[in-house]
Design a protein around this nucleic acid. Structure first.
Length: 276
DNA sequence: CAGTTCGCCTGGGGGC
DNA sequence: TGCCCCCAGGCGAACT
């Protein structure tokens, strides 16, 4: 489940691998992956285009080519591979880009949840329909704790749900939401309208610190998810609560608990994290 | 209008 | 061993 650090890792890896390469042909094997245009338009608009710039907002990858911006959301299990074009594609490969150096960029997605979009290069990123519900990226320099505090005032949701709401703060998924709650010593079911400005300063700082550390570690590899191109993240070694139900808290030695919050598996330490 | 439910998918795990 | 069932989970759309 790629969250901001995994998406950033994919982006940086792909930039090294395919920047300056041209797409000679595009094969779409599972049409629903292509979201905002027809498959024909998708192929036509990407053909003969060269990868120029690599950007990210929240969990969205944005590849700028000559005349189009190509946007990808990996959702649960999407990943890219660069392979020689000789052998048959794996059964979970849904889109194949044939590149100018005789390699292929292959999009692999077991659950087929990922989505791709194309927009004219002249269109401003923030007006892309794909990003309609995407708020501030966690690392957006314009974002300050007060923005989060303001949004939280008229909300009844829990801290965990707030952190997962991409229309407020974009990039955090289930793993890091659990870790952020732990870092700020707040129970994930704390109601955000009860939190202080100081709490939100802590939350924003913790979010940036944890995601930055995860990027440094190449992301988190959990269950089936590996970022792409054979790269495995190492951040799972730094997890305090996620996926650690029944294990011992690294801070206080109490046991880590798991429960459902907003329908999502939520891990926390009752002793370290206070409910507000 | 904000919060909740549903549908999209498939592999893996539990139950038997 | 094998089969069935259920579940996870990001996100948008539909619904309440």
């Amino acid at each position: 489940m790629p969250e901001l650090p995994e998406v950033e890792t994919v982006l940086r890896t792909l930039e090294k691998q395919i920047k300056g390469k041209q797409i000679l042909d595009v094969e779409v094997l599972y049409e629903r992956i292509v979201d905002n245009v027809s498959v024909e338009q998708f192929k036509d608009s990407l053909k003969n285009q060269t990868f120029k710039a690599f950007k990210r907002i929240g969990k969205y990858l944005i590849f700028e080519l000559d005349q189009v911006s190509f946007v990808v959301h990996l959702r649960m299990e999407g990943k890219f591979y660069i392979l020689q074009q000789k052998e048959a594609f794996d059964k979970h490969i849904h889109v194949v880009f044939h590149l100018s150096d005789k390699t292929t960029l292959q999009y692999h997605d077991t659950r087929k949840f990922g989505r791709m979009y194309v927009y004219p290069i002249t269109q401003p990123i923030r007006s892309f329909s794909a990003l309609r519900h995407v708020g501030y990226d966690v690392f957006d320099e314009k974002l300050i704790a007060m923005d989060l505090y303001r949004v939280s005032r008229n909300k009844t949701v829990t801290l965990k749900q707030f952190l997962l709401d991409q229309s407020i703060l974009a990039g955090i998924g289930n793993i890091y939401a659990n870790e952020i709650c732990f870092r700020v010593s707040l129970h994930p079911q704390s109601r955000v309208h009860k939190l202080s400005k100081k709490d939100f300063e802590n939350i924003l700082r913790a979010s940036r610190d944890i995601l930055a550390a995860a990027i440094q570690a190449g992301g988190t590899t959990i269950r089936s998810y590996t970022s792409s191109l054979g790269i495995d993240g190492r951040f799972q070694l730094q997890l305090y609560v996620h996926n650690r139900a029944g294990e011992v808290c690294k801070v206080c030695a109490h046991h880590i608990e798991k429960k459902q919050v907003g329908g999502r598996g939520t891990y926390f330490c009752r002793q370290c994290q206070k409910r507000k």
